[in-house]
């Protein structure tokens, strides 16, 4: 099983990816990139807000590397292997939250869960793009302003919630559980369809 995880899936790429995310957040995380906003004008978004996408790319890369026929007819529970790997990835990501901020770590788990769910019905690239679209949509339409002028967020813009928000953590946890439960099999477009 371990050999399968390392050779076929290459789950070991998660470690350097998390290291890269930590490096990017610490080195250039404070730099801003311009993003248009629905409330008007170009606003800035920090680079570390987008860093979790790297983890999504790594997880999708691993999930894309599979041997469909042996896996479907295997006695060994391959899905359990994938679920365990994703759980370990999320644990490491939350651990790295001590360095990069718990809100970035929570967003990472959120985006991976969303990507796994989208991958179930589409392919890996769409899954990664959906995560990116959620990040961008939260910036574009999810930033609101309180009467006092300070920025806040709309209720659906989960990536914008602060690190201490219980609601966001609960929502992320639910999504993560759902993703582990229903996905980790074949992606939506691979192999002949079972009609």
């Amino acid at each position: 099983m371990i050999a399968y995880a390392m050779t076929v899936r290459r789950w070991w790429v998660v470690a350097p990816t998390l290291a890269l995310i930590v490096f990017v957040c610490l080195a250039v995380g404070a730099s801003e990139v311009p993003v248009p906003s629905l409330v008007g004008g170009m606003t800035g978004a920090r680079l570390d807000y987008f860093a979790p996408i790297l983890a999504v790319i790594a997880v999708m890369y691993c999930m894309d590397r599979r041997l469909p026929e042996p896996e479907r007819t295997a006695v060994v529970p391959v899905r359990r292997l994938d679920r365990a790997a994703i759980a370990i990835t999320s644990a490491f990501a939350l651990g790295s939250g001590a360095l990069i901020g718990m809100d970035i770590a929570r967003n990472l788990v959120l985006l991976v869960s969303l990507a796994l769910l989208v991958r179930r019905v589409a392919n890996e690239a769409t899954a990664a793009a959906t995560g990116m679209a959620l990040l961008v949509a939260s910036l574009v339409a999810g930033r609101a302003y309180q009467p006092g002028g300070s920025t806040t967020h709309t209720w659906w813009a989960l990536p914008l919630y602060s690190a201490g928000s219980v609601t966001a953590w609960l929502a992320t946890l639910c999504l993560f559980a759902l993703a582990l439960f229903v996905s980790c099999g074949d992606s939506g477009f691979s192999g002949p369809r079972r009609s």
């Binding site: 996408i53 999930m63 690239a125 990664a128 990116m132």
Partner: peptide
């Protein structure tokens, strides 16, 4: 690999 190439090229 395509799942790495597509996002990397886009970014």
């Amino acid at each position: 690999p395509r799942s790495v190439a597509a996002p990397v090229v886009a970014i």
